[in-house]
């Protein structure tokens, strides 16, 4: 460690300044847009402009007057809950089999299940739209759920697999040696250790399905649009600060989720997966 405290040359100082200067700039670029949007949402002007003038909650009340937005939130909540449940119901057993199974081709199968995460959402959406056209399966809430569960499943399986691979099997063996049956061992030994992975997977599916536009744009019916699609229309055709107000609510929701994740799983684990 003493080497790290040696006198620095001017080029080291310049290099350090450049590095930390760029890091500060980049953090500003990450955070500033959200702050700008939050500021705009309270403006008294009727069009988006910066800096905001005055202070009003008018645009938040305006959201409540747009019935199609309220409906869209309901659609999105239903879709994201369904997607999360499907992903957990088929993803959790799959992760167990793909990590603990003893059969040939297990690794290849794991690669097959995780591979679709490289697939752009747009391609998944279009593929399911075309596929449905052959079976009189039309754009609908159900089609969005199918598309998004395909889109989210690889991530959910991967997160749970990563967690499962890190669990010490000897604890489970000890539990069954001490007379616990399989159900008890699963409930009291495996599940508690696995929970952070399951929570992370569930949170991911829930948030992605709620926010997703790339899949939903192709699979949602024009009646009963999810919030993301509704917002996409609004951003293009409405220049009032109402979009800023909705965005601010979404940013607040995201911050709450981040805090919950930090408390339950620890954000440090996110880069690992």
């Amino acid at each position: 460690m003493s080497a790290r405290r040696m006198p620095r040359s001017w080029s080291d100082v310049a290099g350090g300044l450049l590095l930390y200067g760029l890091a500060a700039f980049s953090l500003l670029v990450l955070v500033a847009p959200s702050l700008v949007v939050i500021g705009i949402s309270f403006t008294e002007k009727r069009y988006i402009s910066f800096p905001p003038e005055g202070f009003t909650f008018h645009w938040y009340w305006a959201i409540l007057e747009k019935q199609q937005l309220i409906d869209a939130v309901g659609v999105s909540v239903r879709i994201s809950l369904a997607v999360m449940l499907i992903c957990l119901a088929i993803g959790l057993p799959a992760a167990f089999s793909l990590v603990r199974g003893r059969y040939r081709g297990r690794t290849a199968l794991g690669a097959f299940v995780v591979a679709p995460q490289m697939m752009p959402g747009m391609v998944i959406g279009i593929a399911i739209l075309f596929f449905g056209s052959f079976f009189a399966f039309r754009q609908s809430e159900l089609m969005v759920v199918v598309g998004l569960s395909v889109f989210c499943l690889p991530f959910v399986v991967r997160v749970i697999m990563a967690r499962l691979a890190g669990i010490d099997v000897t604890l489970e063996e000890a539990s069954s040696n001490l007379g616990a049956d399989r159900a008890q061992t699963f409930r009291r030994i495996t599940l508690p250790q696995l929970l952070p992975g399951v929570l992370a997977g569930a949170a991911f599916a829930l948030i992605e399905a709620f926010d997703n536009l790339t899949v939903a744009l192709f699979t949602a019916s024009p009646r009963g649009r999810p919030l993301a699609v509704e917002l996409y229309q609004l951003v293009q055709f409405d220049s009032s600060p109402i979009v800023a107000a909705i965005s601010t609510l979404e940013i607040a929701l995201a911050l709450i989720v981040v805090l919950v994740l930090a408390r339950t799983i620890g954000l440090e684990r996110l880069p690992e997966k």
């Binding site: 949007v37 926010d211 536009l213 965005s247 979404e250 989720v257």
Partner: peptide, 9 residues
């Protein structure tokens, strides 16, 4: 946090 807000926002 930016990852958790939608692309449109």
């Amino acid at each position: 946090a930016p990852l958790l807000t939608s692309a449109i926002v």
